[in-house]
Design a binder for these strands. Sequence first.
DNA 1: GTCTATAAGTTGATAGAC
DNA 2: GTCTATCAACTTATAGAC
Lengths: 226, 226
Amino acid sequence: MHDMQKELSTDELMGRFLNQLKDEDQLTEKQKRIMEAAVKLFSEKGFHAASTSEIAKEAGVAEGTIFRHFKTKKDILISLVAPIMLRFASPLLLKDVRKLMGSDLPLDDLLKQLYQNRLQIIEKNWSQIRLIIQEMQFHEELRGAVVENLFGVGRKLAEAFVSSKIQSGEIRNFPPLTVTRALVSMMVGYVFFKFVIFPDEGMNLDDEQEIEIMVDIILNGIRNKE
Amino acid sequence: MHDMQKELSTDELMGRFLNQLKDEDQLTEKQKRIMEAAVKLFSEKGFHAASTSEIAKEAGVAEGTIFRHFKTKKDILISLVAPIMLRFASPLLLKDVRKLMGSDLPLDDLLKQLYQNRLQIIEKNWSQIRLIIQEMQFHEELRGAVVENLFGVGRKLAEAFVSSKIQSGEIRNFPPLTVTRALVSMMVGYVFFKFVIFPDEGMNLDDEQEIEIMVDIILNGIRNKE
DNA sequence: GTCTATAAGTTGATAGAC
DNA sequence: GTCTATCAACTTATAGAC
């Protein structure tokens, strides 16, 4: 049971997560190559199906080199999570989203841009997002870190936004968390269809049109009230 | 590269799928036990992380017995897909959903029941659904079969329903596929939060309340129009 | 001389054969 | 139901770079 060795606790992982910004520059060329190769293979074949020898070959290093830099194979996985999450928590959630949410755009334009923006980021980073969602299922500490950091941050931002719009009277008076989840669910569902169900073909309609209608539905519902 | 052996084509898999109804009774006690053990371990640990020896132990058979009934480990996985999908395509999608869609319930009650109904089925079969979604990513034939059969059937049903409601004037005139995807996205998103993000704790609100609001949002939107 | 990369092991478990 | 060849993660002895 090679998975049962000393596990990193969620706290330790969060520590890494928070310290990663400065650490990122301290990575050697080889470490970066190994991590890049690992992201590629883990997300292509899954964590268990990708062997360290493959990773070594892909990275262009000897297999032993991997274990000079990472205690275990799982350690490579863990080391990938923090930088990936950072790329979502810091420049993205905090900058673009805050800016959009602070703007005084009409609600429809704001939502459209928000969806478009998130979708692009998800598309660009899909293999890594998929990897994290995949492995979350099997590594408790990993899920803990994602939920605490990424989801915690996102949820607070979104709920604050929704609450303010409820108070300003723009949004009906529902529980903010439920409205937030509805907004996010639309995106999750769209992503699910686009990337999980039809990863190859692409969908019939283009994203912009689809998002336009999605926002219309979320804002006005599907019921005909003439 | 044990994944690269002779793959079952989508057609062969669909063949199995269609023939499974009669085959299901022809399974021996041992085969059933092996398959049950495999579903359990594959969905708990993932396909690659679950070993055939564990499966044998869990099923209470000798390891060799597995390979008397299934050519390869992957063959076990493939054999699981058809019965699982059937349990979704036949009794559920076709019976409950058709009945609900054919009823003349008001749209909100109809949607609430539909969501409630689907959610219960997903909850009851979550480990199997998760397994299929997981392994779809890595086994092309499997995804082909799921998309063709499950998704194809579901989509046709849902689109027909939405189209009829658009023609009757109950639903606004959007592309039926987009409306369908919006309806399903809500459920997908809800399931994602409930089972993937917070599989342990359970959510703050109970499903009935959440679904009630979700249906309200989908039907009437979140914009305040007083 | 230390520090790092490497490739040839070692061990154990795995899928699959007999 | 036992057996085995294979391949996994991981180790270590060695050699090269600074």
